[in-house]
Design a protein around this nucleic acid. Structure first.
Length: 200
DNA sequence: TCGATGATTGAG
DNA sequence: TCAATCATCGAA
């Protein structure tokens, strides 16, 4: 399966966040030299984070060691650790007028390797498998080792593939932030079974 | 160094 | 509603 080209991510962060809905997040876990386990989910909820236009963004105050990936080549993973427990996975994206930007992947509908995800999550509940940014990284075994991984390359251990075309999308306020709380930069795929079951 | 904070989660 | 838990960042 092919991946969105680099130029897909070189557009406005909010547009990329919308258009990532319906695509697939794919984690390839090498098992032997010749075999790998494939885990995948449909992207059903995202959030856009900007630069100097967005006080809630990690990049708002400028470059630091942590947010480096938000300033680097677009289409790469930005993975950070938070609350002493969780990793969150983003894809760097921005239009030319900004120096940084990224899209947080907030929820997936599990598609491939569901039983392996349950094992990583230590949880058999399908609806809480990948219904949050920290849950996704746990289910797909994503850590900082994959920071700055090229998401446009199908050979990467973490990448994004074309999936279905996004259908009905709604914009809502972002979650878990204390600044710039009124921006409606969270995007949800409404006509998705998993989202409907979890009541989003 | 040191204290405050956090793009969360799970339990109560 | 609230505690767990620690990397990150900026101030001292």
């Amino acid at each position: 399966m092919s991946c969105p080209h680099r130029s897909f991510y070189g557009r406005s962060t909010t547009l990329v966040a919308k258009e990532l809905l319906g695509k697939k997040l794919v984690r390839r876990i090498p098992v032997t030299k010749y075999e790998s386990q494939r885990l995948a989910g449909l992207i059903i909820e995202t959030e856009a984070y900007g630069f100097n236009d967005d006080a809630a963004s990690h990049a708002y105050k400028g470059l630091t060691p942590r947010n480096k990936a938000m300033f680097g080549e677009v289409g790469r993973a930005y993975i950070y650790f938070t609350y002493g427990n969780h990793f969150c996975v983003n894809v760097s994206a921005r239009s030319g007028e900004f120096k940084a930007g990224a899209v947080l992947i907030r929820a997936l509908e599990p598609l491939e390797g569901i039983n392996v995800m349950k094992r990583y999550r230590k949880n058999n509940d399908y609806l809480s498998l990948t219904s949050g940014p920290g849950k996704i990284t746990q289910a797909l075994n994503i850590t900082k080792l994959l920071n700055e991984c090229d998401m446009t390359n199908a050979d990467s251990d973490l990448h994004i593939e074309f999936g279905t075309d996004p259908q009905v999308i709604i914009a809502k306020k972002r979650i878990g932030i204390t600044k710039a709380v009124d921006k409606k930069w969270r995007f949800v795929l409404v006509d998705d079974k998993y989202n409907q079951k979890r009541g989003v």
